[in-house]
């Protein structure tokens, strides 16, 4: 079985190699003039007004948490999907219980407002993402 996967490794190496070749090509083809102004951080032509490492909206963190929970559960459905036909009713009820837990969690997150990305109230100081 691992024999099928060997070509994939070759392809991964080739794909990264191709990216590197393109970069090298432009390094030789293009003229590098450089200059301080060109290498400064983009701020629409103004002097830099703001840091980029600053506090971010907590919503991104919430989305990440929701993702971890639900994507892992989605991955658990794949093995069941493969054997659903042979498994018949016993397996269907088993996965039904699993999905019921998943849906309960989903409903809980929804009711708690974990899926809301709008700030709680206008003018409360939080910024939109």
């Amino acid at each position: 079985m691992p024999r099928q996967y060997l070509p994939v490794l070759v392809c991964i190496a080739l794909a990264f190699g191709l990216g590197t070749v393109l970069l090298a090509l432009s390094w030789f083809a293009g003229r590098q003039t450089g200059g301080e102004a060109k290498r400064s951080t983009y701020e629409s032509g103004l002097p830099l007004l703001d840091r980029s490492r600053k506090r971010l909206s907590v919503i991104f963190f919430l989305v990440a948490l929701d993702f971890v929970v639900f994507d892992v559960e989605a991955a658990f459905l794949y093995p069941w999907a493969l054997v659903a036909r042979d498994g018949g009713w016993p397996l269907f009820w088993a996965i039904g219980v699993f999905l019921a837990f998943l849906l309960a969690g989903f409903a809980y997150v929804w009711r708690k407002g974990g899926l809301e990305v709008r700030p709680p109230a206008a003018g409360s100081g939080t910024s939109t993402p």
Partner: peptide, 22 residues
């Protein structure tokens, strides 16, 4: 696109900046 200059901003984190497009 090939003959354009490939600028790297001074404040960029170099290795990550170079790796990301690949």
């Amino acid at each position: 696109l090939l003959v354009k200059e490939d600028t790297i901003p001074n404040r960029a984190v170099r290795w990550a900046y170079l790796l990301a497009p690949c």
